[in-house]
Write a protein that binds this DNA or RNA. Structure first.
Lengths: 203, 203
DNA sequence: GAAAAGTTTAAACAACCATTTAAAATATAC
DNA sequence: GTATATTTTAAATGGTTGTTTAAACTTTTC
């Protein structure tokens, strides 16, 4: 019983994640999800009470997926240049693995922020990491440019995430094929690492 | 005759732009547009043959709006630091004036790129500017780090555009009110100018 | 000022939407 | 092995979608 139940529920959850990520909430129909899961349409509402409830559950997972690895890296006991490099590498791999993730998160939150922020304890966790302490210490002893977390973190993340969000427009604008883009993205990743570290780390 | 015609057509066009920018193509209904324009619903199809055609027309305008000012600045005969500063300032003002523009463009292109790139001559214009020549000359005479347009341009644009695309998530993540965010965005803008110029300009 | 052309309207269209129903099929319990 | 609970199904619900219709209204033409 339980085994079979979980199977169907998870099949729908996984199918829904795939479809929502690709088409967004507005672009996805319950029939799309049922078809992707290869199940009867009534089951999406049998296991999750509505399209909205199913979406909220998946969105929470996706947002945690987005922050989880970065959070672990921010708390590692390694020097700040290595840390920034690891964050950027991690972001890069995430974008390659889930190309729809970042634009999905950004767009859904942009369209209805109030509905998507429940008890997001993960936000507090991002605010309070060892990385923050490193920033403060570095600023105090003159090895780092004095910067707040909220200023440096977006500078670290925006480079990689921006070019993946705009992958298609960048391909069109700069006349690139998919393999071209892959090479380009790798180049860009290294530029960002160097640029951010040069700016933050003094000397 | 012509005057009245243009009035209704333009009323619909402007209403459609507002609604599409806010809700995206999938989230917008023909009735939303008619209501925003305060006109009968049949008129949207009388003037523009379908929701799709109306959308494509507006999307083209929006994409040109996005590139137009930047293109003019890229071709100005000013030194490269000033030019980068002006591009960033222009981006910043555009994001403040049209907060939905950048996420709208990114999301719509991401969802269906093939449908949205007609005869985009503006792309070629962006590729061939005086800025490109400045980059080449600077690299040749050792005043600039050797970089291609496709590498430096996203670095210039991503900082400002990323924080505006993710305005709501940044507000939530870093516990900011709207006035907080405005101040924060100004700070960030100056960081980006300094960081990019430091990286590109040698010495 | 009558005929023609252009514009606006309310109503209707079939297709599709999220969700519900109630019966059928399956698994579990005793 | 029958009774009970759970899962799956096809069909229907009422509402919304993009689009069309045909009649009413307004403007232009001569």
């Amino acid at each position: 019983m339980k085994c079979v139940t979980e199977k169907s529920e998870d099949k729908i959850r996984e199918a829904a994640k795939r479809v929502f990520l690709k088409k967004g909430f507005d672009g996805t129909t319950s029939r799309d999800i049922a078809k992707e899961a290869d199940m009867n349409i009534a089951l999406t509402n049998y296991y999750f009470r509505s399209k909205e409830k199913l979406f909220l559950e998946i969105f929470k997972d996706v947002l945690e997926e987005y922050f989880q690895n970065m959070l672990a890296i921010l708390n590692k006991d390694i020097d700040i240049k290595t840390k920034i490099s690891e964050i950027i590498d991690n972001d890069f791999e995430m974008m390659k693995k889930e190309p729809d993730l970042i634009i999905f998160i950004m767009n859904e939150i942009h369209k209805s922020p109030q509905r998507l922020f429940p008890d997001m304890s993960i936000f507090r966790q991002v605010r309070e990491t060892y990385f923050k302490k490193q920033l403060e210490e570095g600023a105090a002893n003159g090895t780092l440019r004095p910067m707040q977390l909220e200023n440096i973190l977006p500078l670290i993340k925006c480079g990689v995430e921006f070019i993946f969000m705009g992958k298609e427009i960048h391909k069109e604008l700069f006349v690139m094929t998919d393999p071209d883009f892959e090479k380009y993205a790798e180049e860009q990743k290294e530029h960002i690492k160097a640029m951010v570290c040069n700016y933050l780390v003094i000397g």
